[in-house]
Design a protein around this nucleic acid. Structure first.
Lengths: 333, 333
DNA sequence: TTGAAAGCGCTAACAT
DNA sequence: ATGTTAGCGCTTTCAA
């Protein structure tokens, strides 16, 4: 049978209240009793039940993480950094991959609410503000990652996608490209990056041309399909700004299949700077997101919120950084 | 305030016992009352507290997953498949990356024991049988993944590493290679794969030569270092069997740095068939592990164990499959 | 068919 | 400094 606080109390000849106090370092306990209790706890290998203590209104020390897809290297790295920071702070992470599906998102949230997690990190791409508002109304702490929820007052960590798109495009422009395509994610982040792309274009006196812009899923296969489509068009671009590294790699595969060389015939910029970018062939020029800091930041924000140490909400915006490798090149005459 | 079973009972003019019964579909309840209770539950948007019900001895419906490193694509995919199957079966997954560190492993296990998880999946490379025995003694259900614990009776899902090593090496032998190096993980799995490697060599009348065998960490950087070492040696091998795809990529980078061409000067075989293998340059010949099935299988085993539907323990062994791409080639004369 | 009541293991007033 | 006791929200006999 598992040991309970009663076992310890009996063995140490004290009341359960006393044991509880030494466990939690509350109230005043004589040094001798404290030592005796500690001793007995050790002897019995007693571990207080967190579910019992949670029932009395204390924390469960677990937090729910909703993320699109653990199998995507970017999110895996992000999840890892969140997990690490969480554990440092004494919290366990319950992982939920949502596949960008609203139903899954709602389902997991309601499940984890029943489990009384102390809070949520919403790193899921999709989010109808309704679920966020719902959580907020219930006073359940949340922190939102990588998604700007401008209409709700909530702790947020984002990377400026507009700048990311702008920088990627500007880099291509600097290399002399004039026909620049964009194959972006069919998600909020994709639109925002596309805004940056558009802005850079216009700043350089170039038209935003819809035939050069495609939206699709976050996958190598998706990138390849869209890449084929764009590269086989009558006027093909000399450079493409991809939604993320996965998509960029798909585009490279498409180019290869069409006998086009990267970066000689077409330059490609990725996004996220995952391990894929470093090992792809050629190595990918990509927009790096500081996932390590991002994970740490959201976690810290959330914990502050949980501990009630905060007055208002915070909105942390980090900046992406262009990481130039070999998939982009000055355009040939 | 969060609704409790009392709110529902009051509103529906029944006792909490009745409400409990309709929630759990136990006992006998009149159809009319049941409907009324259900109705009230809906109106109040009542969600039973799982922590309270866990305290009364029922399941927490969460299981702990110990895995070396979520940021490694192989484990990320594995984790994802485990998570999916878990959710299908109604369980949440608490993720813990151990970095192959025994202290972390123990720490997380003891933490999750306090949280009363229903069981553990141990996919962590490291494992002293002691922690497994401990869990077993406490009657806590566990299932072990990708690690053969031959001295303990426990549910296990493994992929035959000996065969994997054998096949990889045989493939290289078939291509005419005679000087075959091995840069393997400094872990149990690495030793086992090396056994397979050795066996293949000897079966072909070749000596097992220690200077051709190196053990190192699971990382691109590690692979690169060891690769440099091995490829700069007096007699360098014409082919290398790598510990996993990460290491293989490191070796390719090392080769490139030395001006050696893959696969013309040296062939490389990876392990795991992660996304990295598909996109690396050149695409990696690698030993594929069926991570999707692996995840599903352990989860199923664990759940059976938790539900007590099983008589004895099971040991499931899956087979790896060589996946030939372009990093291996027949040796030149 | 329904309800009263005794826990589950722990915390936190409130007494002593 | 330590103990008594009333919950926390739910499940489960056992009565009614």
């Amino acid at each position: 049978m598992k040991k309970t606080i009663y076992d310890v109390a009996r063995e140490a000849n004290v009341s359960i209240a006393t044991v509880s106090k030494v466990i939690n370092n509350t109230g005043r306990i004589g040094e001798k009793t404290r030592q005796r209790v500690l001793q007995v706890m050790k002897e019995l290998d007693y571990q207080p039940s967190l579910v019992a203590s949670a029932l009395t209104g204390k924390s469960t020390y677990s937090i729910g993480l909703l993320i699109p897809d653990l199998a995507n290297p970017f999110f895996a790295e992000l999840a890892r950094s969140i997990e690490d920071r969480g554990h440092e702070l004494g919290y366990s992470i319950v992982m939920c991959s949502t596949d960008y599906r609203p139903e899954k998102e709602s389902k997991y949230i309601s499940l984890l609410k029943q489990k009384s997690v102390d809070g949520f990190i919403l790193a899921s791409g999709f989010q109808n503000d309704a679920v966020i508002r719902d959580l907020l109304n219930l006073k359940i702490p949340i922190a939102v990652l990588a998604r700007d929820v401008s209409t709700v007052s909530v702790d947020t960590v984002t990377v400026d996608d507009f700048i990311g798109g702008y920088n990627a495009t500007q880099h291509l422009l600097d290399l002399g490209h004039q026909q620049i395509g964009a194959i972006q994610l069919d998600l909020e982040v994709g639109r925002e990056r596309t805004r940056g792309y558009r802005h850079a274009l216009q700043e350089n006196g170039l038209e935003y041309d819809e035939k050069y812009v495609l939206f699709g899923p976050s996958s190598v296969e998706g990138g390849k399909q869209m890449g084929l489509k764009m590269l086989q068009a009558a006027e093909r671009p000399t450079a493409i700004f991809a939604g993320n590294d996965l998509v960029a790699i798909g585009i490279i595969q498409a180019a290869r299949e069409l006998g086009l060389s990267i970066p000689d015939d077409v330059s490609v910029v990725g996004y996220d700077n995952t391990i894929l970018a470093a090992i792809s062939n050629p190595p990918l020029t990509t927009v790096a997101q500081p996932f390590h800091d991002m994970g740490r930041q959201v976690m810290d924000l959330l914990i502050e919120e949980i501990k009630g140490e905060k007055k208002g909400k915070k909105r942390v915006v980090m900046l992406p950084e262009l990481c130039v490798r070999e998939s982009t090149k000055r355009i040939r005459k």
